[in-house]
Design a protein around this nucleic acid. Structure first.
Lengths: 209, 209
DNA sequence: TAGATTTTCTAACGTCGTTAACTGTCACGC
DNA sequence: GCGTGACAGTTAACGACGTTAGAAAATCTA
C-alpha cells in the first residue's frame, strides 16, 4: 500500500543499463518504422500490427514502449516538427528580414508538400490539440522570433505580436493544407505573405501619421 | 448485354412513386440523424450502427441509401457548406466592399466555431479531395465573387484573381482551424484580412505609380 | 390468393486498437 | 551449479468498426 508500486522497475544497475539501451533502441526503431510506413504508404497503412511486423515483433510489444497509438502518433508529430524546423535552417540565415519571412514561408509549404502524410498527422485534429501545440512549440517560437525580427527591422509596431504570429501561422497552414499536392503552393504562400507584410507595414505607417 | 441492366428498377409507376418518396424520406432522415450525432457527440460517435439505431433501423439499411460511409460523410460535407453559405447571406448584403469581406470572414470563422465537428468533417483530408472541392464549389464561388467585387470597388487589379481567392480562402481556413475553440478567432480573421486587403491595395497602388 | 419483388434483419467476415495470460530466457543469490 | 524471480515476447482473445451475404418478412402484382 505504502510502497512505490508504480514504476518500481530498474533497481539493479549492472545489467539493466544494457537492457535500458536495448529498450531505447527498440523504441527508436518503432518510431522510425512508423515514420517510414506513414511517409511511403499513408496514414491508412499505419496500424500497430504493421509497425510491429516491420520491426520484427508482434503487436503487443509496441505497448511496452508507448501508452497507445495516440502516444506513438504524438511522437511522429514531434519528429515532424523537428524535421521541419531543420529545413528552416538555411532560410533563417537569410539576412534580409523580408526575404527571410518569405523564404521560411516557402520552406514551410514545401515541407508540407514533400511530406504530405506526415504533415497531415502533424495537424490531425484527432490528436489532442494541447499536446499537439506543445510539441509544435519550437516551430511556433521560430515563427515568433522571425516576425519579431521583421517588425524590428522595419520599425513596425504590431498591435499584438502574438496574434500577428497566429495569423502568420494560420495563413501558412491554410495555404499548405489546401494545396498539399500542388507545386505552385510555395509561390502562393510567398504571394500571400508578401501582401500580408505589406499590409502590416502600411497599417503601421498610417498609425504613425 | 444491350439491355440496361444497371438501375433497371422503378419500372411500374403506380405505387412505386410512394415507395420512392418513402425511400427519399428515409435517406433524408439518415442524413439528419448523422448530422445530429456528429454535432452533438463528435466524429468518434458517428458510426453506421449508431446512425441506423437512431433512425430505428439496423446497420445494413444505410447501405441501401449510400454506397458507404464515405458517401454519407460527403453528403454531410455538402450540407455543411449549404449551411455555411446560408450564414453568409446577411454579411453578403453589406454595401461597403471592405466591410463585406471582413464580415464574411468573421462569419466563416464563427461558423467553424459554432459547428466544430461538422467543420472538421467538411475539411477532413480522409475524404477525397476532389469530391470535397466539388461540393465546396458554391462556397468558393461566393468568395470569388466577393473578392472580384472588392477589387472592382477599389480599382485594384489583382495579378491573379484565382490565386488571390485561394489565398483568401486559405487564410480563413487556417485561422478557423487553428482557433476552433477560441472566441477571439473571428477578430483574428478580421485582423488578418484587413492587413491582407490593405497589402493588396498598396501593392496595386505601387504598380500604378 | 399465389407468386414475384422489395424491404429489412440476422449473422458473419476481416480488420482495427488493446489487454490478459502464458512461455521462454536470462541475471542473480545461495 | 542451480533454483528463483524478473523480464521479453508470444498467443489468444475482446469489443467495436465498416461492410457483405443470405434468410426472413412485408408488400405489391396478377
Amino acid at each position: 500500500m505504502f510502497e512505490d508500486t508504480t514504476e518500481a522497475k530498474w533497481r539493479s544497475m549492472p545489467t539493466s543499463t544494457r537492457r535500458a539501451r536495448e529498450r531505447a533502441n527498440t523504441r527508436e526503431r518503432i518510431i522510425e518504422a512508423a515514420l517510414h510506413v506513414l511517409e511511403t504508404e499513408g496514414v491508412a497503412a499505419l496500424t500497430i500490427r504493421r509497425i510491429a511486423t516491420d520491426v520484427e515483433y508482434t503487436a503487443p510489444v509496441v505497448y511496452q514502449h508507448f501508452a497507445g497509438k495516440d502516444a506513438l502518433l504524438l511522437e511522429l508529430v514531434a519528429h515532424g516538427h523537428r524535421l521541419m524546423l531543420d529545413e528552416f535552417r538555411h532560410a533563417l540565415r537569410e539576412p534580409d528580414a523580408d526575404r527571410r519571412v518569405l523564404r521560411v514561408a516557402s520552406e514551410y509549404v514545401r515541407f508540407a508538400g514533400a511530406h504530405p502524410h506526415l504533415y497531415r498527422v502533424m495537424n490531425d485534429p484527432a490528436i489532442d490539440a494541447d499536446e499537439r501545440r506543445r510539441v509544435a512549440q519550437p516551430a511556433i517560437d521560430a515563427l515568433d522570433e522571425l516576425l519579431t525580427a521583421w517588425s524590428a527591422a522595419h520599425d513596425v509596431v504590431l498591435p499584438d505580436p502574438g496574434e500577428a504570429c497566429e495569423v502568420l501561422w494560420g495563413t501558412l497552414y491554410g495555404i499548405a493544407s489546401l494545396h498539399l499536392g500542388s507545386d505552385r503552393a510555395p509561390l502562393l504562400a510567398e504571394q500571400a505573405l508578401r501582401a500580408l507584410l505589406l499590409g502590416w507595414r502600411t497599417e503601421a505607417a498610417g498609425q504613425k501619421a
